[in-house]
Each structure stands twice: as C-alpha cells, then as structure tokens.
Amino acid sequence: MAGFLVSCQSDARNATRIPPTPSEKLKSNWQKDAIDALTNNIRRKIDLDNSYFKRARIYFENEQYDLAINDINDAIENKDNVGDYYLLRGQVNRELNNLDAALQDAQRAEALQQVSPELYILMADILQEKKRFREAQNYLNRSLQMAPYDGSAYYVKGMLQSRIGDTTASLGSFKQAIDLNPRLLRAYQQNIIINNRLGNLNNALYYNNLALKRYPKDAILHFERGQFYNALNKSDSALLSYNKAAALDPKLTEAYFQSGSIYLKWKMHDAALKAFEKVKNNQAEYPQINYLIGVTLERMGYDDRASEFYKMELEKSPENQLAYAGVVRLQRREMGQYSTPSAREPAQPSAPTRILDTNRVQIRTIQPRRSIDMGTDTTRKVIIR
C-alpha cells in the first residue's frame, strides 16, 4: 500500500494507470483499497487531478457513472490540458447518453494529440448515433486497424450495418461484440431489438437471458423479458418479470401499467388498482390511466369514485367513448334502471324459478326400430362351385 501511495503521487502523464491487481486479492477488494487510497490523496490534496482521474476510471469500470462524471469533472477543473481526461469524460457522457457533450470531449481529446483505438471507437459510436455514417466508418476503420479484437468496435460495426438495413450482418457483428466483450450491454440490447423486430422471439429471449446473467439488476432487461412472455401468452411469467422490473426501477411506469393490465384481466382488482395508481403517480398524463382506474373501481363496487375518474378522463379526452359509456352506465345504475352486483357486496338471491309439474307430463317409452322382412329375391340365381 505504501508503494501504491508513492505511485499516486507521480506525474499524471507518466503514471495514468491504476496499480496492478495483487494476485492474492479479488478485484473488488483491490478496487476498494485503491478507492480508499485515492480518497486519502484527494483529502490531502496530493497529485489532485491524477487522483480524481484514477478514481473516476474505477467508478467507470464499475458502471457508477454518476460518481465517475463528478470525479472526472474535478480532474479537468484542476488540469484542463490532458487528453486522457477528456477521453474518459467522453466515454462517461456516452454511457449517460449525453451525446453532444461526449462528442465535444472526444474532439478535445483528439485535439490534444490523443491517439488510441478507444478514442476512435468513441468517435465512431457517437457519429453513427448522430447519423454521420461516413465519418463514423472512417473512425471505425482506423480503430479496427489498431485493435482488431475490440468488442466495442464490432458493436459500432453492427450499428452501421443495421442502419443500412443489413440485419443479418449486423446480428453477426453484435454476436462477435458479445463474444469479445461479454460486458457490452448495448450489444445484447441491439441483438434483442433486431430479433424481436424480425419475430424471432426465442432468439430475442435467449439474448435477454444472457444479458440478465451479466446484469441481473437491469430493470429494462426484466421489462423486455416480460414483453416476450406476454407475446408468447405466458402471462404468469410476464407478470413476474414486470414486477421485478418495477422493484428495481420504481420510475419504470410501463412496468406498472403492464402488471396492472394482467391483474385486471385476472380480476385481481386490489392489485390492479395499486399498479394503476403508481402509474398515475409517476405519470399523471399516461394515456387512459384515469379510465382504467375507473373501470377497476367500478368492478370493486366503488361507483362514486369510479365516476370521478371517468369524468377526469373525459375532461382530458372528450372523445373517449369508453369513459363516456362508463359515466352513463353508472348514472343509470344510480337511477335504478339496472343494477350489477358488486365485488364488495354479496350477490342478491335470484328470483325463484318456475318448477315444472311432472304429473302433467306424459312420458312415452321410445320403441326400438323393428326390422322389415323384404322377402327373398327369387330372380337371382345362386351359383355354388
């Protein structure tokens, strides 16, 4: 550890690599030790910009992008002319989907004479997202010349192939990207999207399973899994996936909506109401959510509250005929024109039915058909040999 602290104090340009992993420790252990040591350096203001940079890179490798962006910003604030710093910030911004900021950082790194396959892959990836395909292809070619076995390069290659409609080639590139870098989540996602678009649900589900083994806490992957099961009419499995997705990301509104729809179909009204209320809390303007809450409340026997939600839906969407029909139905029920037993009240006994008087009914036994003797046809001769 003393040697590690000395290395952290050296110049950032000569020692930008994090110290190698001690063979006797697991990766998580040495990363924790490295973070502790770097945090101590930062607290003591020792080699400040380089310490922030090294800690940011550990956070980036652990996919803690919010922590990484804070540290790399501090590194650049302390020293703003290092290409490695801008490259790392560009990579973090790419993961956070801040494409404009990522492109500016990558261009600044290139202007500072940064030359590496990582930079060229980052440039190619951002440019293909911005549909500047020719420029993206040029950077991709340069990266493949320098690093022909980089999984991220094959991901970008697959994206460019997909953009021009060559889905077969793109699937092959995404598969190669996963083989070279099993932690490349975007490659799994693209494989899932393309297979789903082609109707290959089993293949899409296969890559979804592979991705979940690597990223078991990714809410989107669990939600997509639910969509596949739903398409295959496996509602019970779909519901488990939707609930898992919602538990991992409470802001994933669509997961609550899908689970509520399944509960409503199964007539589990309490669970459906809770799910739909979470949809409304997350996104008050979600399409038809007031109507669905109204339907659920009506089926539970809460007609007054159901009417309120139907009217709220009509205020937002006056053309919604289903909500209008719900209001009319509740008004007629209130006027006594017809009634429907609610789920909260015991059903009323039905009116006595008329009993048939069997004494006035004549029952005759059905006789079996009798055989008819047609006689013998004497005109036909029987030849005996």
Score class of each variant (00 low, 15 high):
Leu88Asp: 02
Arg89Leu: 01
Arg94Glu: 12
Arg94Trp: 09
Glu95Ser: 11
Leu96Ala: 09
Leu99Asp: 13
Asp100Glu: 04
Ala101Glu: 14
Leu103Arg: 06
Gln104Leu: 15
Gln104Phe: 10
Gln104Val: 13
Ala106Asp: 08
Ala106Pro: 07
Arg108Lys: 14
Glu110Trp: 12
Glu110Arg: 13
Leu112Asp: 05
Gln113Lys: 15
Gln114Glu: 13
Val115Thr: 14
Ser116Met: 13
Ser116Trp: 09
Tyr120Gln: 00
Tyr120Thr: 01
Ile121Arg: 11
Leu122Trp: 09
Leu122Asp: 05
Asp125Lys: 04
Ile126Glu: 00
Gln128Asn: 08
Lys130Leu: 03
Lys130Ile: 03
Arg134Ile: 08
Arg134Cys: 02
Glu135Thr: 02
Asn138His: 15
Tyr139Ser: 02
Leu144Asn: 03
Gln145Ile: 08
Met146Arg: 01
Met146Asn: 00
Met146Glu: 00
Ala147Ile: 05
Asp150Lys: 11
Gly151Ala: 10
Ser152Leu: 08
Ser152Arg: 12
Ala153Asn: 06
Tyr154Asp: 09
Tyr155Leu: 05
Tyr155Ile: 05
Val156Ile: 08
Lys157Ser: 00
Gly158Ile: 05
Leu160Gln: 02
Leu160Ala: 01
Gln161Glu: 04
Ser162Phe: 15
Ser162Lys: 10
Ser162Tyr: 13
Ile164Gln: 13
Gly165Ile: 05
Gly165Arg: 04
Asp166Cys: 13
Thr168Ala: 15
Ala169Tyr: 06
Leu171Lys: 08
Phe174Val: 00
Lys175Ser: 10
Gln176Lys: 08
Gln176Trp: 08
Gln176Thr: 09
Ile178Gly: 06
Leu180Ala: 00
Leu180His: 00
Asn181His: 04
Pro182Met: 06
Leu184His: 08
Leu185Asp: 02
Leu185Lys: 05
Ala187Pro: 02
Tyr188Ala: 03
Gln190Ile: 00
Ile192Pro: 01
Ile193Val: 07
Asn196Leu: 12
Asn196Ser: 11
Arg197Trp: 10
Leu198Gly: 02
Asn202Gly: 11
Asn203Lys: 15
Asn203Pro: 11
Asn203Ile: 12
Leu205Thr: 03
